[in-house]
Nucleic acid binder design. Structure first.
Lengths: 231, 231
DNA sequence: TCAAAAGTGTTTAATATACACCCATGC
DNA sequence: GCATGGGTGTATATTAAACACTTTTGA
């Protein structure tokens, strides 16, 4: 390479055709929360190499499609949800990560309220799995999953993303259980309440839980301006 | 779309050819530090649409090349440096972000010691720019730059990445100046020293600065195990 | 009346901030 | 001797952590 003649996509007109043997995809780590447990939505893989293994939800990005749009499309197609929380995390591009050819994949994580989801595939092909039970996944999806989960754990301590896992009305107990499930630790109830309240994100609805087999707790919702700051 | 027949890159054998009209690239935001100032390495763009504008250093990713490897290759080609600190930040994939066609680009930031760099292009085409003077860049590079700079600002408070901007031997003053330049704030000298020392990352070399027009400060280096934790 | 969780404050420890003087060197 | 930055400690404020009892409801 001579000193001043590196031809380059950013500096010179370059013919792209030689580089077109690459496809791009998105993979979504979709988290949900149910029965005190953090779960992730997985689909059964049908490729010979990974027959029967579970994989993340993803798809190829269309020729004219934005990455974020593609991730939204996947989520909409699989859960029926719009206006979900999506966060780009990392891009995985090892040359042989996918058996079909060179596929560079951008990973997103998403937080959804499980009970709002209308899954669009038969139950045995698309399924919520407890996060703590995830051992192996198809492709490099275990690595993608781990990376996204670590990011989620870091994000919840400084941002109110976690509310997206709960229904609009929730009790402080539910909110604490979500934090405990994600961080994998037990939290002191009094200190947790103090901290959450000091953030001034919650609006007291002056309503109580019902259908709980114990003393009902107050219900709260995220303040509208905090909701707006999320998307 | 019928309920259970979404054909998908993760679940079925899919023909990729229709998706191959995409190229992938890496773009590197290379930070350096000189004369109390944070700088970024930019190259002059020669494409008609952005003639004369400055752009980040980047290149197309080869058909068999890993993303991280491609970023290292770009850095090596432009600065002559190996073993630099590289951090993947975000992937930008808007359909018309590059005039040559669909190019999805993964952004990295890198921290280098300016005085170790042997720039491989004529001085007027490849140049260190003060970060505070960056207004516009070619393509969507201003957005990429801003994203990487914000990540750097967040990263330095919890990780010793910043040492990569300094020579192996440095004084606490130099280290403080780097922090101040990145964060854009003035820091209290006594509190800064206390905080750095409490991290137990530094090894006192029992040497003094020379060539400074004032009382020389002690020289330190990053402890070897902290260096290892960086890469 | 029992089980389960709601609700509620104080004390202590750790961390972060604010702030001022004398010292060593080069010019 | 003057300009520049080196080197140092303490007091205060803020934040985080530990910890226990009474109350309410459903079964």
């Amino acid at each position: 390479m001579s000193k001043s003649t590196i031809k380059n996509i950013n500096t010179h007109a370059v013919e792209l055709n030689a580089y077109f043997g690459v496809a791009i995809s998105v993979d979504c780590v979709i988290f949900g929360f149910d029965k005190r447990e953090l779960k992730v939505l997985l689909i059964r893989c049908d490729l010979p190499k990974y027959k029967g293994k579970w994989s993340l939800l993803g798809d190829l990005v269309g020729p004219e499609e934005d990455l974020d749009k593609a991730a939204y499309r996947v989520l909409k197609a699989r859960t029926g949800l719009r206006n979900v929380y999506l966060q780009q995390v990392h891009t995985f591009g090892a040359p042989r990560r996918h058996p079909a050819g060179r596929v560079v994949s951008t990973a997103y994580y998403s937080l959804v309220n499980i009970s709002n989801c209308k899954l669009t595939t038969q139950a045995n092909e698309l399924h919520w799995h407890p996060v703590k039970d995830i051992r192996t996944l198809a492709f490099d999806h275990k690595k993608i999953f781990d990376t996204c989960f670590e990011h989620l754990q870091e994000d919840i301590v400084r941002s109110p993303v976690v509310f997206k896992l709960l229904p609009q009305k929730f009790s402080l107990r539910q909110l604490q259980h979500v934090h405990e499930a994600i961080l994998g630790v037990a939290l002191d109830r009094r200190n947790f309440r103090k901290k959450i309240m000091s953030m001034e994100l919650l609006e007291d609805l002056n309503e109580m839980e019902n259908d709980v087999p114990h003393r009902p707790g107050r219900l709260y919702r995220l303040k509208p301006k905090a909701v707006a700051a999320l998307s």
